[in-house]
């Protein structure tokens, strides 16, 4: 690190602002994490270490509800992330390998647009859309909505990776008698695999964690893990909610870290 006078760490108030930001961002998560191990029934007073609330999640009165919701979430996330990844690869092929076409910039923007649109707007719009075409709400509506908003998350690492693969490799493959499709399967796809896995994982966890859009488009009686947690919280916060939240947080951290590590993987050495 540089020790010059322009080093950001020498600015007045640097330390206090940093600490404040960290506190606001992470203190609630840390507290939830700690209190999920509380032996007490209370959510505010500490009464020693215990795993009883984790046991409660799997065996308690609400465990069946959470189990169904968790399987729903997993099922939806796998399908939505798979479809979003395929769409993202196709979009990247067109935008990055499609040469210069007139709507290239716009296409690029459209793919990333859902990242900028307020989620509540997407949620309402999606709901209105399903109502307008007379689609009854249920698993299918959730999956379709999830595919739609997962595409930009899958697209980012995939596009970044594809940009890093020189097109001269595919040219060389075609020069050596490979068809366009063979060049894609044998050359581009293997070189892009880390980006594709990274994009899939990111889309997977985004789908897994989504509450707002899911809550709008899910039918009555269909719950995912986030909506089930929300439903449980409405009847008052119990420590088992903290336990299940901590587990979901842990999963998110693992998947996002994995996605980052995989995206940096060099499979050419």
């Amino acid at each position: 690190m540089s020790s010059s006078k322009t080093d950001v760490r020498r600015y007045p108030g640097f330390l206090s602002v940093t600490l404040l930001c960290l506190l606001v961002l992470y203190a609630p998560l840390v507290i939830v994490g700690i209190y999920s191990f509380n032996a007490s029934n209370s959510i505010t007073s500490w009464d020693g270490f215990s795993l009883r609330w984790y046991a409660e999640v799997f065996t308690g009165s609400e465990s069946e509800k959470f189990k169904i919701a968790a399987w729903n979430s997993l099922f939806i996330a796998i399908i939505a992330a798979s479809c979003a990844t395929i769409l993202a690869v196709l979009a990247a092929m067109a935008i990055i390998r499609g040469g210069q076409f007139r709507t290239r910039q716009i296409s690029q923007g459209l793919v990333s647009l859902p990242l900028m649109v307020p989620e509540i707007v997407t949620a309402v719009a999606t709901l209105i859309f399903f109502n307008a075409i007379g689609f009854s709400r249920g698993h299918m509506t959730i999956i379709i909505a999830h595919i739609a908003f997962c595409v930009p998350f899958a697209y980012m690492p995939i596009a970044a990776r594809m940009q890093g693969v020189e097109d001269s490799y595919e040219m060389a493959a075609m020069d050596l008698y490979a068809s366009r499709f063979q060049a894609f399967c044998r050359i581009l796809l293997p070189l892009m695999i880390p980006g594709i896995i990274s994009g899939f994982l990111l889309a997977f966890i985004i789908s897994m964690d989504d509450f707002l859009i899911t809550n709008f488009v899910k039918g009555a009686g269909v719950e995912t893990l986030p909506t089930a947690i929300f439903g449980a919280v409405k009847q008052g916060i119990k420590p088992n909610i903290m336990a299940i939240s901590t587990m979901l947080l842990g999963l998110s951290i693992i998947i996002v870290s994995l996605s980052y590590i995989v995206s940096k993987f060099d499979n050419t050495k």
Binding site: E166, S168, Y169, M171, A172, M174, D175, L176, Y177, A178, S179, R180
Partner: peptide
């Protein structure tokens, strides 16, 4: 197309 031509190329950056 290039894959139907019985010519092969040695690329500048080798590829």
């Amino acid at each position: 197309p290039p894959n139907k031509r019985p010519v092969n190329t040695v690329f500048q950056n080798y590829a």
